[in-house]
Nucleic acid binder design. Structure first.
Lengths: 148, 148
DNA sequence: CGGTCTGGTCAAGTTGATTGACCACATGGT
DNA sequence: ACCATGTGGTCAATCAACTTGACCAGACCG
């Protein structure tokens, strides 16, 4: 694979990601969630894990803890997240998704599935599975954060 | 492909894009370009095409023309772009990459190729070609703009 | 206990983008 | 030829997300 094809592949990945993000955003809006940005989705993914604190979230998103704190404040205001005391550390406050937050997560997953369903129409089912397998091998596990 | 696998695939694409963007950013910094954001790269790609105006660029990036104008002003200040009069329209100003701008574009392409080269190590050459072919079929051609 | 580290927030400043106003020139009809 | 309207572009003010800096309360450790 020469440089030309390599950069071309990189651009295809970026373009695919643009489609995924735009598609999710559209799908979310269609489902009534028009007050959330992609960054919120990445935050939801981390908060869904047990015992998440603001500092954990900041690290996950690659921002400062202040930025994470502000983002959480917004989610709390909108009823997607609650702050609960940490039984083991009186300083810390554990973040947890409310029922609304979980519903929102399900909507985002459905929207993402819709985008891939569109791909399924132009690509045989087996190829989509192969695509999945190849990406899993290529991609190093790591945080999924706003990238550009 | 069920919903679970579909959303999983969508997340893999996002994660792959995160790697590409971060890798390019690192590679650019290593080559001495530490004053450019990913958005600038997308602008370069459009400006490289003949007869690009600020309005064209704004449409490509999905922003307002004012934002595009500011972005261009920054690139002009840093010597990557020049504004030239349009022989056919005295209002318009055609954008063109300087030699520095073209060198920068080459550096970005090299950095992107480096990222893909890393993938080549964990995936057989033929599979990488297949990945390329599948993405090309799946992805609808369109602007490559900052997405999240 | 006192010193230091860590989780978290408040406050102010920075930056990229937006809305609104405006000018110079193009275009099309009369 | 002229005026109405549309388009390319910039200036100015505002907005929103994020940053740096300061700070407090509680944990950890000698």
């Amino acid at each position: 694979m020469d440089d030309r094809a390599a950069t071309d592949l990189a651009m295809l990945v970026l373009r695919a990601a643009t489609e995924v993000v735009d598609g999710i955003q559209e799908g979310m809006a269609a489902r009534g969630y028009d007050d959330l940005r992609p960054a919120h989705g990445f935050a939801f993914a981390r908060i869904a894990a047990a015992d998440t604190t603001v500092v954990d979230l900041a690290e996950h998103l690659g921002t400062t803890k202040q930025a994470a704190s502000q983002l959480v404040a917004g989610l709390v205001d909108r009823g997607y997240v609650v702050r609960e005391p940490d039984p083991r550390d009186a300083r810390a406050r554990l973040l947890r998704l409310t029922e609304a937050g979980e519903a929102c997560t399900r909507a985002a997953e459905a929207a993402a599935a819709d985008v891939v369903a569109g791909w399924n129409e132009v690509l045989p089912r087996a190829s989509l599975g192969a695509l999945h397998a190849m990406l899993r091998r290529v991609v190093t596990p790591g945080p999924l954060r706003p990238a550009w």
